[in-house]
Every structure is written in C-alpha cells, then in structure tokens.
Amino acid sequence: MSITKLGKIAVVGLSAAWIVGCSTTASETDSSANSAENTESTDQAFGAGEDDSLTSVIIADDAANADENGMSMLDGVETVFYFDFDKSIVRPESREALTKHAQYLVANPDARVVLEGHADERGTREYNMALGERRAKAISRYLTIQGVAASQIESVSFGEEVPLAFGHDDNSWQQNRRVEIRYEK
C-alpha cells in the first residue's frame, strides 16, 4: 500500500460529504432462500466482535500477494469497526483492516459483502437506524474508493436493535457503535 494512497483515503474518510451511493436499485428482498446460511455466518461475525480489540492485524504485502484470491488473506483481519458517539467517520485504526477487505474484494469480483451498521441505545430508534446506515455507508465509501465495485457492497442498518454489549455505560455504548462486515456466500 502506498503512502499517497493512504493519505488520500484519510482525507476522504474524514470528509462528511455523502456522494457515493452503494446502490439505488429497488428490489423485493424476499430472499428467504439463503436465510439460514446468513444467520449462521452472522452469528460468527458477532462472536468475532466480542474480543473488542481495536488493534489492526498486519499482514505483510508479500504474503497477501502470494494468496491473492483466497479467503485466507482475511484470516485474523478485523471484521468489526467502531465509531465515535453520533459520528460516522472511519477511525484511523480501522483503515489497515479495511484495506485488506478491499484488496480481497477487488481480487474477487464475485464476492459480496453486507455492511451492517449499528448504533448505541441513546437517542431514538429510527434516528439510530439512520445513524447505523450512515456508518455502514462510510465503510462502503472507504471500500469503493479503493476500487471495490459498488455492486459488491450492500449497506444495512440495525440501529440500536442488536447490541453486542448490554450495559448502560460508555464501554457498552462504544462496543455497540459499530459496522460489521459480513461476507455473503
């Protein structure tokens, strides 16, 4: 990853403007066929988030190139990304892992991800639905800037409805303000 590219991403990541939409197509989403599988894979994603470590996992560029198309390039890469209160700015510590996801998606144009945005319990529920989506779209934008096709990404919000932590304190709220990347099979 070049330094200039990182710099550019940082600027865009901090920008509050919303330009890129991941999808504008209407659809009937009665896709009950794949529901069982989805539920399973997402439960695993929730499990991954519980360790609450924000440290990026660094994979050497060489290793990534050697195994460009395999899912193994994402081994150990963070799938949960956290946000500040009432904010939807991608944090600097999220960038490294997000870049790995972007590289994988670019190398695998058939791969699809759902970005599931979440909010903490404060504030009203439908506003938090909007806030969760805004966070998912911040991640989406981060990925598309690195070359991921918009058609590979779907942003969904769960608002405050699916918390990871159940306390009514700063620590729980922080764990709940998040976006989870879920790969669709």
Partner: peptide, 10 residues
C-alpha cells in the same frame, strides 16, 4: 408487506 428497497425501510 410494503414493497421494500435497498437500505432503510422505516
């Protein structure tokens, strides 16, 4: 069910 779209339906 109301016709749903990508993203929020709320």
């Amino acid at each position: 069910r109301i016709k749903s779209y990508k993203g929020l339906n709320g």
